[in-house]
């Protein structure tokens, strides 16, 4: 039967070398951020809100690795202290988004026609709203906080992923191997369990990793509008937004939080892709 097992849809096309340095780097960075999230005081020389007006807007130096902000706060220490909150919001929102997406996508692709159409149309209506607007709506109802942000960003980005999940499931459902399995007389439940769901949902591993970075960017937008974590919290999005005002005079305030977000997003994606690759390899042998 092995011959009938398909290769995963949307398999990574980039060759994964024998020595995946990018993977080691990514794991290293995530490990560092994990320490920062759990025990920030081990890594940060200053407190997250410790003000020192005499050293306001200092460029990066050995004393202040990432420079200081308008109140003389050490940006590196703030980034370290902001890790836990940022990771929580990023992972939490990505999780909420994907759970919603899988439920909606599976309903749209697999349920009986009237239900599928209803779900389909509902997702389309949600789609008509920009993701930020959906998020704003939720925050307007519940009030701003980190938790609201998690759900707001999750809800806001879910319709896009729901569409994707639906497409993946439909593609798997209509594929040759499912047709073959049906022809061989496999039960509906077995086909769903063994063929459709694994193939349709496996790409989500990478998507999940990817959406963490995206969620942090979304959350930063909400923080800026005063609808997320309130300043002077060192949440990365809030740092990025606070830094924007000083971009011409103190670009490090924007640069470093931005780079950290990019680095996290890259690492998470890299790990996601390797994970996907190894999962696939494991299944083949």
């Amino acid at each position: 039967m092995t011959a009938l097992r398909p290769s995963v849809i949307d398999a990574p096309r980039v060759a994964l070398t024998k020595r995946p340095w990018s993977l080691y780097l990514s794991i290293g960075l995530l490990a560092f951020l994990a320490v920062a999230a759990v025990a920030p005081n081990l890594l940060a020389p200053y407190g997250p809100t410790a003000i020192d007006y005499d050293s306001a807007l200092q460029p990066p130096s050995f004393l202040h690795l990432f420079g200081t902000d308008e109140s003389g706060r050490d940006l590196y220490s703030r980034v370290i202290h902001g890790t836990s909150q940022s990771l929580l919001i990023g992972i939490g929102a990505a999780f909420v988004s994907l759970v919603l997406a899988v439920i909606l996508g599976a309903l749209a692709a697999l349920s009986v026609k009237p239900v599928a159409i209803l779900v389909d149309r509902s997702v389309e209506i949600l789609f008509a709203f920009p993701a930020l607007l959906l998020a704003l709506l939720l925050i307007a109802i519940t009030g701003p906080s980190a938790w609201t942000q998690v759900f707001a960003v999750g809800l806001g980005t879910a319709p896009g992923y729901a569409r994707m999940v639906r497409g993946q499931i439909l593609a798997a459902k209509n594929s040759g191997y499912v047709e073959a399995a049906t022809a061989l007389g496999h039960s509906r439940g077995r086909i769903l369990h063994e063929h459709i769901l694994p193939n349709a949902l496996r790409p989500l591993v990478a998507v999940f990793a990817l959406s963490i970075g995206q969620s942090i960017v979304w959350a930063s937008g909400l923080s800026f509008l005063g609808l997320g974590v309130a300043p002077p919290s060192p949440e990365w999005g809030a740092l990025l937004d606070a830094g924007r005002a000083y971009v011409t005079q103190a670009s490090w305030l924007l640069l470093f939080p931005g780079l950290v977000i990019v680095a996290l997003a890259l690492s998470a994606t890299s790990i996601g892709r390797h994970l996907q690759f190894y999962l696939e390899k494991g299944r083949r042998t």
Binding site: G213, R244, V247, S251, L255, G258
Partner: peptide, 24 residues
């Protein structure tokens, strides 16, 4: 997925670069 994926990845970086350019 490959195109939107990379697009999403560079977005934060692009913001940083665009802002720096605007500043100049």
């Amino acid at each position: 997925m490959s195109l939107p994926r990379s697009a999403r990845l560079v977005a934060p970086l692009a913001i940083v670069i665009a802002a720096s350019l605007a500043a100049c």
